[in-house]
């Protein structure tokens, strides 16, 4: 099997779905050309190169470069979806979603409900998340928890290339609006990815590593932080189960609750937010449904309740690290 990066895996998914279904279109800023492009056919494909080459294969009627108007991108995508296309809209940074909340929260997310189930909104919004790129407070947030709390939206957080391809194919085939969050630091992360098409169902967590002493639930890039910590802890005989929910909405509660029932200890590693984030959400779930199994207080490992700092040392300290996970694990076992 071939090793592919997340960038290549996403490109695979888009190309295969566009080839399979001519209702699939792409729209966004610089998705055709953009920085580094040498012409419309050999286009760079978005600020991060994910849509590279697609305009050459599918033409400018299906790969649409938009003006810098986030509200128009999302409004056009929602309308196109309601009329039968399957748009994949790209918004460079999740931080910019604020200017198109109405199109997403009030329009796309509500169509199916408010039209009495008579319409579907099969749109995908691809966007980037995550600190660590030295891009300061307005380009570094992880706002997936906000979208998770809106009924009518599905939220997907791939942590590896195999999942990225299968989850994006599932997102495109899904009849509801799906927000697809890509961590900026993971695009070059590679693993074995089949050339063939496949879809990974939403709401099915991946048990990255089996363990007996502590359950760690982690999202997106934090899965790798948790794995690195689990390896260090294994050297000391501490056995950690790492769970990657892959989607926050729907959420695979059963896998998390079963694991906590087995280990009795839970750490949630979540880059989204210290307040009202996924860590708080998962902790609330486990307290409500698995309280009797808990042997120790749940640890929520999140960034502090501050904007993402621009100072590199502060930015590095802001994001949970493998060392902070190891320290949390030692605390929870005390």
């Amino acid at each position: 099997m071939t090793q592919k990066t997340i960038r290549q895996a996403l490109n695979d998914a888009l190309r295969q779905e566009m080839g399979r279904d001519n209702r699939v279109i792409i729209l966004g800023e610089d998705v055709a050309g953009g920085q580094g492009g040498t012409g419309i056919i050999d286009a760079y494909g978005g600020p991060l190169g994910v849509t590279k080459g697609l305009i050459g294969d599918f033409g400018s009627r299906r790969v649409i470069d938009t003006p810098i108007t986030e509200s128009a991108i999302m409004g056009a995508a929602a309308g196109a979806a309601a009329t039968g296309l399957r748009p994949v809209a790209e918004l460079m940074f999740v931080d910019f979603m604020g200017v198109c909340f109405d199109q997403i929260f009030n329009q796309a997310a509500k169509f199916r409900y408010m039209f009495g189930g008579k319409t579907r909104t099969p749109m995908v919004i691809r966007t980037t998340i995550g600190a660590g790129m030295r891009t300061a407070a307005q380009h570094s947030q992880c706002l997936y928890h906000m979208f998770t709390s809106v009924p009518g939206l599905k939220c997907v957080l791939p942590s590896n290339a195999y999942d990225a391809k299968g989850l994006l194919i599932e997102a495109i085939r899904d009849d509801d609006p799906v927000i697809f969050f890509e961590n900026k630091l993971l695009y070059d992360h590679a693993c074995e990815v089949p050339d063939e098409s496949y879809a990974i169902p939403f709401g099915e967590a991946n048990v990255v590593r089996d363990g007996d002493d502590i359950t760690i639930v982690a999202f997106s890039r934090m899965v790798h932080i948790a794995e690195a910590a689990a390896k260090k802890l294994a050297d000391d005989g501490i056995s950690v189960e790492v769970i990657d929910p892959r989607t926050t909405s729907p959420l695979d509660e059963e896998t998390i609750l079963d694991s906590v029932a087995h280990t009795g200890r839970l750490i949630v590693v979540d880059e989204s937010a210290a307040r009202c984030g996924m860590a708080a959400d998962i902790a609330g779930l486990v307290v409500a449904k698995a309280f009797d199994h808990l042997k120790a207080p749940i640890i929520q490992l999140t960034p502090p309740h501050t904007p993402v700092p621009f100072s590199p040392p502060l930015e590095d300290a802001y994001v949970p690290s493998a060392d902070s996970v190891v320290a949390a694990a030692r605390n929870i076992l005390k």
Partner: peptide, 8 residues
Amino acid sequence: VKYKRLDG
């Protein structure tokens, strides 16, 4: 599981 997910 990965085999079973493949299209077809």
